[in-house]
Amino acid sequence: MTMTMATATAAADNGETTAAMITKQSAADEINQKKSRIQVSNTKKPLFFYVNLAKRYLQQHQEIELSALGMAITTVVTITEILKNNGLVKEKSIVTSTVGMKDANKGRTIQKARIEIVLEKSDKFDSVMHPSDNTNNTSATNAAATTNTNNNNNAESNEKKQ
């Protein structure tokens, strides 16, 4: 959350304080982070739904946040490990906490474990997601070279026969 001097000067010219500009920037960051947050449940969707959703979010955002409560924490950890092992992400931060929730049956507050894992794109993200870009060019080149070699061999054998 850095502000350039030009931004601070423009804010001052418009009658806004630097604190107001930082507050607006923080609000914008919060909105952007909410757009790239995936709240995981272990009862509503299968594991690979969340893995594929995370891949799609990473195509649109530089980083994503996976969060879960209670028994869904293991699902978030599994999703993170799948993405890391495929070379798509790097862990940026992991935060654990407890959250007080109202128990509907007993009417009392219970504590639930919560995890938030922020993942950022790896340097290899694009090459891992789109490996066909490199292999198609290589395959086409190899196919052309094989065709040329076969044509040359056929021409030589035809000359020997005559």
Results as ranks from 00 to 15, higher is better:
2 T>F: 08
2 T>E: 09
4 T>D: 00
6 A>H: 07
7 T>M: 13
7 T>K: 11
7 T>W: 08
12 A>Q: 11
13 D>T: 08
14 N>A: 12
14 N>V: 02
15 G>S: 01
16 E>G: 00
18 T>G: 05
19 A>T: 08
23 T>I: 10
23 T>M: 14
25 Q>L: 15
29 D>L: 15
29 D>Y: 15
29 D>E: 15
31 I>Q: 12
32 N>D: 14
36 S>W: 04
36 S>P: 04
40 V>I: 14
43 T>K: 11
43 T>L: 11
45 K>M: 14
49 F>H: 15
49 F>S: 14
50 Y>H: 11
50 Y>L: 12
52 N>V: 02
52 N>D: 15
52 N>I: 02
53 L>V: 06
56 R>C: 05
56 R>H: 10
58 L>P: 02
60 Q>K: 13
60 Q>W: 07
62 Q>I: 12
63 E>Y: 12
64 I>K: 01
66 L>P: 01
67 S>L: 05
67 S>H: 01
68 A>Y: 01
71 M>Q: 15
71 M>D: 15
73 I>K: 06
74 T>V: 15
75 T>H: 07
75 T>Y: 10
79 I>G: 02
80 T>R: 06
82 I>A: 07
83 L>K: 02
85 N>C: 05
86 N>Q: 12
87 G>M: 01
88 L>K: 01
90 K>L: 09
91 E>M: 15
92 K>L: 07
93 S>C: 03
94 I>F: 10
94 I>M: 11
97 S>P: 03
98 T>G: 06
98 T>I: 05
98 T>W: 01
101 M>Q: 14
103 D>H: 09
104 A>G: 07
105 N>Y: 09
105 N>Q: 13
105 N>P: 00
106 K>I: 10
107 G>Q: 04
108 R>A: 10
108 R>E: 12
109 T>S: 12
109 T>W: 04
109 T>H: 05
110 I>V: 13
112 K>F: 10
112 K>T: 12
114 R>P: 03
115 I>S: 01
120 E>D: 06
120 E>W: 02
121 K>F: 04
125 F>G: 00
127 S>M: 06
130 H>N: 08
131 P>H: 00
131 P>I: 00
132 S>G: 00
135 T>V: 08
135 T>H: 02
136 N>Y: 05
137 N>G: 06
138 T>H: 04
139 S>M: 09
140 A>G: 00
140 A>H: 05
144 A>G: 01
147 T>I: 08
147 T>L: 08
152 N>L: 13
153 N>H: 07
153 N>Q: 13
154 N>E: 09
154 N>G: 03
155 A>N: 15
156 E>F: 07
158 N>W: 06
160 K>Y: 08
160 K>R: 13
161 K>M: 11
